[in-house]
Design a protein around this nucleic acid. Structure first.
Length: 428
RNA sequence: GUGGACGUAGCUCAGCUGGUAGAGUCCCGGAUUGUGAUUCCGGCUGUCGCGGGUUCGAGUCCCGUCGUCCACCCCA
């Protein structure tokens, strides 16, 4: 028995980073006025083909596609934007509205797994729909920059580019194809194949033998239409004014066809080859292409596994806090009465983390578990204590002696004792 | 999808040129039958990833397969 390749279990010892990221993003997005929505993990295959593009790697070879018993071709979502846009259209959310949305969950791509790249992975998606100007672009990027600060992540860099409108991109693309055809003898097999489907990707090639041809190729940046140029310059100015560093990367091309104008990518040098942790861009043409009224939009996706890895590298304390009180019992009568007593304490003190020793064990073993739990205080209930109507309280993290407390006063006294112990341990 | 490294106890790992598996840790019990560390004593856990082949004999050699990791490709 093993998990399906590329699909991982997230164990309790790792969950802290996930919960921190979830908590911080939830609060941050709310502060910027974004609302959560949830969409299905499965959509009609045609949606992804139309949105992402027939000739992208994702659609060509990475989708988990199957035919259901009704004969429909369905696909496990490989990315989040298509589903959100489809939901906005089919639920009538677009009528002149300005939407600020986020969603999160698993995505599926059939790739060869390696560190930071899995077949089931998780993304947090943010989409701003109905905003045309560069101000949203800047706000989204500023929000992500703030997120890294809040998470203590420092080894990141922002790469920025503009792809222009689909019209200007088409014109540039023809120029580029013409250029590469002139140098076709130098191109490797991958690049020759891309000449037809997605020539912009050739610019991304890491093949050293092609570097000369690639770096001499015409640049997208030099072929932007005037409006896109203006949009991009305004964005850069806003980022600079906000103190957000960026690197212009004229070769930054995204792998999905729907992007236009602004594209950006946060990269890190801390994760090996999988260096993109958060990236996105404008998709002004997508909504119309999917049957909605023409609506400008921009969004980004963050790779949860990758960001969580950076969080744990940053050394944030991520473990669940230890219990406040560990309850030890001894004897038949004590064991019969402990649950009811502890439940009563919980009624009065719901915020106190109380761990009752379960599964028996002799006194020594129970104390060992109490010690290992990290609890500052042990509550000891034996038959003798119950007969006298008291409980013994023993501090576990310092040498203070053991004391007794009438059962009726426990809920009144426990908070004060815990406060004392916390104060002492901070002082010490 | 391509290339490479690796896969032995829950965990970290040892196991020489083939002779039927070991250490530390963890966990449990005892020394101390109502008190945690340390110490000492005792105990538990293995289809040596899986399948096949060579051999009298395979953890060890060969082939296949699955998985992990690294790089390419691509991407979050």
């Amino acid at each position: 028995m093993q998990a399906v390749r590329g699909m991982n279990d997230v164990l309790p010892e790792q969950i802290g980073g996930w919960q921190l990221l979830e908590r911080v993003t939830r609060e941050l997005f709310a502060a910027y006025g974004f609302e959560e929505m949830r969409v299905p993990l499965v959509e009609n295959t045609a949606l992804f083909k139309r949105a992402i593009g027939e000739f992208t790697d994702i659609v060509e070879k990475e989708m988990y596609t199957f035919t259901d018993s009704g004969g429909d071709s369905l696909t496990l979502r490989p990315e989040g934007t298509a589903g959100v846009v489809r939901a906005a259209i089919t639920n009538g959310l677009l009528r002149g509205a300005r939407l600020k949305l986020w969603t999160s969950g698993p995505m599926f791509r059939h790739e060869r797994p390696q560190k930071g790249r899995y077949r089931q992975f998780h993304q947090i998606d943010v989409e701003a729909i109905g905003f045309a100007g560069p101000d949203v672009d800047a706000e989204l990027i500023a929000m992500t920059a703030r997120l890294w600060r809040q998470l203590g992540i420092t080894r990141v860099k922002l790469k920025l580019n503009s792809l222009g409108t689909s019209q200007s991109r088409r014109a540039y693309r023809e120029k580029l194809v013409a250029y590469f055809r002139q140098h076709e003898s130098v191109l490797d097999a991958d690049s020759r194949r891309r000449l037809e489907g997605n020539p912009l990707r050739i610019l991304d090639s890491k093949n050293p033998e092609m570097q000369a041809v690639v770096s001499a190729a015409p640049l997208l940046t030099d072929h932007l239409d005037p409006e896109s140029r203006e949009h991009f310059d305004a964005l850069c100015a806003m980022l600079a004014a906000s103190g957000i560093d960026y690197v212009l990367d004229p070769r930054l091309v995204r792998g999905l066809d729907y992007y236009s104008r602004t594209v950006f990518e946060w990269v890190t040098d801390a994760l090996g080859a999988q260096d993109a942790i958060c990236s996105g861009g404008r998709y002004d043409g997508l909504i119309n292409q999917l049957g909605g009224d023409a609506t400008p939009a921009i969004g980004f996706a963050m790779g949860v596994e990758r960001v969580v890895e950076l969080i744990s590298q940053a050394g944030m304390p991520l473990t669940q806090p230890p219990p406040d009180v560990y309850v030890i019992t001894s004897g038949e009568r004590a064991q019969r009465n402990t649950l009811a007593l502890v439940e009563k304490i919980r009624d009065e003190l719901p915020q106190v983390r109380l761990h009752v020793n379960l599964g028996g064990g002799n006194f020594k073993a129970q104390f060992r578990r109490a010690d290992k739990s990290g609890a500052p205080l042990a509550l000891i209930l034996g038959d003798g204590e119950f007969e006298r109507g008291v409980a013994a309280l023993k501090p576990l993290r310092q040498e203070t002696g053991q004391s007794e407390c009438p059962l009726s006063e426990l809920t009144a006294r426990i908070p004060a004792i815990l406060k004392d112990l916390a104060g002492l341990s901070h002082a010490g």
